[in-house]
Simulated scan of single mutants.
Amino acid sequence: MLKPRRTVLGALALAVSLFTLGTAEAKEWNKIRFGTEGAYAPFNYVTPDGQLAGFDVDIAHALCEELKVECELVMQDWDGMIPALLANKYDAIIASMSITEERKKSINFTEKYYDTPTRLVVHKDSGIDGSPESLNGKRIAVQRETTQDRYATENLEPAGAEIVRYATGEEATLDLVSGRVDARLEDAVVLSESLLKTPEGADFQFVGDPINDAKYFGLGAGIGVRKGDEDLVELLNKGIAGIRASGKYQEIQSKYFEFDVYGD
């Protein structure tokens, strides 16, 4: 007759133990470590004195200030951005990472914090107009493992283009300027700021329409977070809403852009 009672008491003890354990392991976000690339100006880059800077970096600091938590920035090569997050090198990715269904299989995302289209840039004398036919036999530079890489692989390579992949966007742009490739596919703002507005970009131009296919480019750039850290996603979403409501987001945006990068 006592066995059922012991079973119930044991179950209650186990439940209390699990509740206590869950409570003890609940994360208190007094500090958030953000991973970023440092090679994607004007969103993230390294200053001459070795400091991380850019729109992504300023947004990270603004979020920490809004949420009243300590902020740490960690530089990470793009290829290892998600693996390093999963390995607990940092808590969140703020590196202009598009929110895509493919990436959501591995990590969670906050709501977007900006949304800009992808464009194709070429030399003015290239004869390329952005159509698949004009890209047949041409070498197109992309940064490896990006949404632009996937788009080019699935849409431009079958049309006869050769996709040339680089570890960083800066390397891809340098090869375009030097004539080693015929075109560069990248975020329109990055191409505008890092090439077209520079003396080296005087002979280059956008061609074709802006590309914003959600299948490849998702719903804008979000902050990547490990699955299981839903509380951090919620906290960062609160922070994004807060800096937009206070005007801090617009203040940061005006440092880098002459238009609204948040989108609709």
Rank of each mutant, 00 (worst) to 15 (best):
Y249E: 05
T100K: 15
G222W: 05
N30M: 08
Y249Q: 03
S246A: 09
T47D: 06
A161F: 00
I99N: 01
S194N: 14
V74K: 04
R244Y: 06
G54W: 07
V74R: 03
V164C: 07
F259V: 01
D49S: 15
V207H: 09
N155A: 08
A241T: 11
A141W: 04
S254M: 04
D115L: 09
R244S: 00
V181A: 12
K112N: 13
A15Y: 02
I99P: 00
V164I: 13
I32E: 08
K138E: 08
T147M: 13
N136G: 10
K68L: 04
P42V: 02
G137H: 06
L14M: 14
V181S: 04
R33F: 05
K215D: 14
I223E: 00
E186A: 06
M97Q: 13
E186C: 01
K89M: 05
A172S: 14
G38A: 06
R103W: 01
I128T: 06
E28R: 03
K68I: 05
A183E: 03
S126M: 14
L174K: 14
Y249A: 04
R33P: 06
E186N: 03
L176C: 07
G201F: 10
A11T: 14
T36F: 00
P117Q: 07
F206R: 00
M75G: 12
I107K: 03
M81W: 00
D229R: 01
T146A: 09
R226D: 11
R5S: 13
T118N: 02
A214R: 15
E186G: 04
I252R: 05
V69Q: 12
L176A: 08
F55K: 02
E170Y: 12
K27Q: 12
D229W: 04
R184E: 07
L52F: 06
I240Y: 06
S134P: 05
A39C: 02
